[in-house]
């Protein structure tokens, strides 16, 4: 073995080197486990549910006959519920985060709110379902509707949106704020023209991750009484006459993808399990699509900004 004078003189022991390699190996293994689990899941779903995917699967209502059953009300329901969730949680969450980060005085009360926010993000989703049942269904009498479901999921992801937005706002360097203030900008001008645009990438990423958590939720929606077998669509959000938009759908009953899956899985016939796998595949593609969008947006906004 050739001697290595550099290594001898620098005093790096071979033991250190081996330890280094050992950790690299352990890290690699850990990564393979998580990637492997995902791959197994995806192939399983693909093999089982893949053949079930067809145009008819997307355009059919559920049925007593597994071969004729489809996910039409489920994916329409999911999209409508997510729309309500996004429209509610996004402006509320961003506004709350801007207030907490830029306007609120820093003292024990804001510290308490911050701790609470972190706790709320960890509350099990079914607890939100119970609260929504009491508040939206019984007190406000919104019914077991798309509106109730959207608001419930909005409450569920609100803490996540607030925390992600605060994180993104905090990452905007002080020097940028000071540059705006030194020119005579007001607080709102600084936030509106500089802080929020610079934080957009981070905020969008947080939003999409929050929404992709909401899209997979079933427990809170079952608590408020989502139907699991539904053979009609909600009212269309448009109409032929002025003002062309209709909001009747907000109060319609609904189902969503995870609940449809749950319904199918809990049936004894094997053919329905295949349907569940097919629906699972669609849901997974929806979620992966949203995550992909988050990554794309983050990369896009990062390109514009460098500190």
């Amino acid at each position: 073995m050739p001697s290595n004078p550099l290594r001898e003189r620098s005093g790096i022991g071979t033991g250190q080197k081996q330890l280094d390699r050992l950790f690299a190996l352990l890290g690699l293994l850990a990564m393979l486990v998580s990637v492997g689990a995902l791959l197994v899941l995806l192939t399983g779903l693909l093999m089982e549910g893949g053949p079930r995917l067809s145009w008819a699967f997307f355009t059919s209502y559920p049925s007593r006959f597994a071969e004729q059953a489809g996910i039409l009300p489920a994916w329409v329901g999911t999209i409508l519920v997510m729309a309500v969730t996004a429209v509610t949680a996004v402006p509320l969450g961003i506004a709350a985060a801007v207030y907490l980060e830029e306007y609120a005085p820093k003292h024990w009360l804001t510290d308490l709110i911050e701790i609470n926010m972190a706790n709320l993000a960890g509350v099990p989703s079914i607890v939100y379902g119970l609260m929504a049942l009491g508040l939206f269904v019984y007190q406000l009498r919104l019914g077991q509707s798309i509106l109730t479901a959207g608001l419930t999921l909005a409450l569920l992801i609100l803490p996540i949106v607030v925390m992600a937005t605060r994180e993104a706002i905090r990452a905007v360097p002080k020097s940028l704020r000071e540059a705006a203030f030194a020119l005579g900008a007001t607080k709102w001008q600084t936030v509106q023209h500089h802080v929020l645009p610079s934080a957009t990438g981070g905020i969008l990423t947080g939003l999409i991750l929050a929404l992709s958590r909401a899209i997979g939720e079933s427990a809170p929606l079952m608590t408020i009484g989502a139907l699991s077998f539904i053979a009609f669509l909600p009212h269309a959000p448009w109409q032929p006459d002025f003002p062309f938009l209709s909001f009747e759908w907000l109060l319609d009953p609904f189902t969503v993808m995870p609940i449809q899956m749950f319904n199918w899985v809990s049936r004894p016939q094997e053919a329905f399990h295949v349907n569940a796998a097919g629906a699972g595949l669609v849901l997974m593609v929806m979620t992966l699509g949203m995550n992909g969008l988050a990554i794309y947006l983050r990369a896009r906004y990062r390109k514009r900004i460098q500190w």
Binding site: P173, S175, L176, E178, A179, A180, A182, L183, G184, A185, T186, Q189, H193, H194, P197, S198, R304, I305, Q306
Partner: peptide, 21 residues
Amino acid sequence: FQKPNPFPKSIYENVAYGLRI
């Protein structure tokens, strides 16, 4: 400031910002 801190905007918009507000 000590470190150049231009806004992540165009050269023109950087200079015009004080006038705009």
